[in-house]
């Protein structure tokens, strides 16, 4: 991590909407060249935090510095150096792919000539060259999202903010977006993203915080979080009987921790195969057994609970 001043510094940052506290005092540092993630269920305060960093909504308390400036006083100057890929598309569907980029570049005071050049480069980068002259309306969700990412890069930003960049995309489209974001990371662009996809966080983030109920409940690299809050492996057991409760006692002390789900039981163990063997030794006959690597998902669910948040 560089010794230079972080690009983003938040201390005890709070966002309130009336009586509702969306962000309840968080501390965050994002350094140059880093890919930083906010992970959390819906309503955890990720998007509110992103909107404060994007200088769109003013903090209700605490301090926030972005690129060494104050987001309330210097909002316009900060936004000039940010690239924002919002959760909801805000492309102009009546304009062409290229026009969407050139028009947007003009908002940053970029000359028409440079805007056209940059648009062509970015269209190539997000693999939309063949659709450059088409209007945006009929493009697929994945294409629109790639165009939105290209648009966020039009001002050659110091920080790119991505709010759930792959939500709603099919697997192919998602992988293409990840590839492009990974390339940006390779180029040294600082990425700040929110997601509730664990695989996305594992793929892209150098460091992340898990948010729940407006607070940060864990912080670290994906590897560190898995080491700290989960085991190396997870065994998923399914049984043909409808009620799994009776197995909880029988499985006791196998692995480090057990979790009962409606349809399966999870055993957290450093050696999955040894745990499976132990299950067999107790004469239990699961209908299916799956040993897998522990993922951020296990960390995430462990930390934020399995309650469904709509």
């Amino acid at each position: 991590m560089s010794a230079a001043e972080p690009l983003i510094t938040a201390r005890d940052l709070v966002k309130r909407f009336g009586d509702f506290t969306a962000v309840a005092g968080i501390d965050v540092d994002v350094h140059a060249g880093e890919a930083f993630g906010f992970l959390g269920p819906n309503g955890a305060g990720k998007s509110s935090t992103m909107r404060m960093i994007g200088c769109v909504s003013a903090p209700s308390g605490g301090t926030l510095r972005i690129l060494g400036m104050d987001p309330v006083r210097d909002g316009s100057a900060i936004r000039a150096r940010l690239g924002v890929c919002p959760q909801q598309d805000s492309l102009d569907p009546e304009l062409t792919v290229r026009e969407n980029l050139t028009v947007y570049a003009r908002y940053f005071g970029i000359s028409r000539k440079v805007a056209r050049q940059r648009a062509d480069e970015l269209i190539e980068f997000v693999q939309l060259t063949e659709r450059a002259g088409d209007t945006v309306e009929p493009l697929s969700g994945g294409m629109k999202r790639r165009l939105t990412i290209a648009r966020a890069l039009v001002n050659d930003p110091a920080i790119v903010l991505l709010d759930e960049p792959t939500t709603g995309l099919d697997p192919q489209a998602r992988h293409l977006v990840w590839e492009r974001l990974f390339q940006l990371k390779q180029r040294g662009v600082t990425l700040v993203l929110t997601t509730h996809y664990m695989d996305e966080a594992e793929q892209l983030c150098d460091r992340l915080v898990v948010m729940d109920g407006g607070k940060i409940v864990a912080e670290g690299s994906p590897r560190q979080l898995i080491d700290r809050y989960s085991t190396r492996e997870v065994v998923e057991l399914r049984f043909s009987e409808a009620t799994l409760d009776s197995y909880v006692g029988k499985l006791e002390s196998i692995g480090e921790r057990l979790e009962l789900l409606p349809d399966r039981i999870l055993l957290y163990a450093d050696d999955g195969d040894a745990a499976v063997a132990a299950v067999g030794n107790r004469d239990l006959r699961p209908s299916s057994v799956l040993v897998r690597r522990s993922t951020l998902e296990d960390v995430f669910l462990h930390l934020t609970g399995r309650t469904l948040v709509d």
Partner: peptide, 11 residues
């Protein structure tokens, strides 16, 4: 189309 929202992210 959320044009104003997209502008809001610029200077």
């Amino acid at each position: 189309h959320r044009m104003y929202h997209s502008m809001r992210a610029t200077p």
